[in-house]
């Protein structure tokens, strides 16, 4: 269904400039009916927009999937929005800097009613160029998450905002830190929230039918300047995969490490299928489908990217290689 309403999740710490960007979106996308769901009090007052406050209610799903959580408050609010006769053209969900992005994203994969009428377009994370390094370095007590790291890890687009407050060298450092956590997201620079809205809205980051771009550049193991627990691992491997062994490995991987794997994406060549197989996942939720056929002279290169905690690159590579036909 192409008439699903796109939903953009806008996350970032207090002071990263979310409200400024939100106001820009609401002002510049005039003519569009936009609904904003926010859970911190902002100062938004735009004519055509509906603003609804949400209280973060995280529900664990009783389906044997331990990391499967959804946002009950969003299900109620969105359920109510999509029933209205006057449809919205776009929905923006603004989360606090402390919110966990996983339940927000998973809400769109788990609930049938949400799936039928909405599509998660992208998770956009704003970071403050001046302070993000400090947030990333903050040592959290054992067992708790560093939310700044999580929000970057889950993002499809990362906007490094307030670049005017840092020099070029600092900006480079910030960008490399951000990319070390999330090698998949497109990183954009902005000051005063001045980012090209076409790069963050209606980008179809979760849409498997849009060409999945996995940039091989970051796939190589970059040098680690920091001891990171959350990283991206990219694997590139030529050859065709045995579908049985591949399925076995993926389901084993997700059942044992699903909690630690935040996002994953892949383009695979499966033996016996002329088409590319594209997939993506959020924790244990997996979504995949055949894509376009491989070109006549095209090298059958498998590309796989994981973003997660305590990822063992060598082990992942080895086990993936064992799936080759």
């Amino acid at each position: 269904m192409s008439d699903k309403i796109p939903v953009t999740v806008l996350t970032g710490f207090l002071g990263s400039g979310k409200t400024t960007l939100l106001n820009r979106i609401l002002t510049e996308q005039h003519g569009m009916r936009i609904a904003v769901i926010e859970n911190e009090f902002g100062e938004i007052g735009i004519d055509d927009a509906l603003v609804i406050d949400a209280d973060e209610e995280i529900f664990e799903m009783n389906n044997g999937c331990i990391c499967c959580t959804v946002r009950g408050d969003l299900i109620r609010i969105l359920g109510n929005l999509v029933r209205r006769r006057d449809r919205f053209d776009h929905i923006l969900i603004e989360t606090t800097g402390l919110a966990d992005p996983a339940p927000v994203a998973q809400t769109f994969f788990v609930d049938e009613e949400m799936k039928a009428s909405l599509r998660l377009d992208a998770i956009v994370t704003l970071v403050d160029a001046r302070h993000v390094t400090q947030h990333l370095d903050e040592v959290k007590p054992e067992g708790t998450e560093n939310e700044a790291v999580e929000q970057i890890a889950f993002a499809d687009r990362i906007v490094i905002n307030k670049t005017d407050l840092v020099d070029e060298l600092e900006l480079e450092e910030v960008e490399s830190r951000v990319r070390a956590v999330n090698g998949l997201a497109e990183v954009l620079h902005a000051s005063y929230g001045q980012v090209d809205l076409n790069r963050i809205l209606d980008v179809g980051a979760f849409d498997l039918s849009r060409a999945l771009d996995l940039d091989p550049e970051f796939l190589a193991d970059g040098e680690h300047q920091h001891d990171l627990t959350v990283t991206s691992v990219g694997i590139e491997l030529e050859g065709e995969l045995d579908s049985g062994r591949l399925n076995q490995w993926l389901s084993w991987l997700l059942s044992t490490q699903g909690t630690d794997i935040f996002r994953m994406k892949g383009i695979l060549a499966v033996a016996g299928d002329e088409r590319r197989f594209v997939f993506q996942g959020v924790h244990m939720l997996f979504d995949g489908q055949p894509d376009r056929p491989w070109g006549p002279g095209e090298r059958r290169v498998n590309r796989l990217v994981f973003i997660g905690r305590n990822l063992d690159r060598d082990d992942l590579t080895q086990r993936f290689a064992a799936c080759l036909a």
């Binding site: 799903m61 389906n63 009950g72 299900i75 609930d111």
Partner: peptide
């Protein structure tokens, strides 16, 4: 009056 049933988010 003997039973109460609930319909739930987790398809149960």
């Amino acid at each position: 009056g003997k039973w109460v049933a609930s319909g739930n988010q987790d398809n149960s």
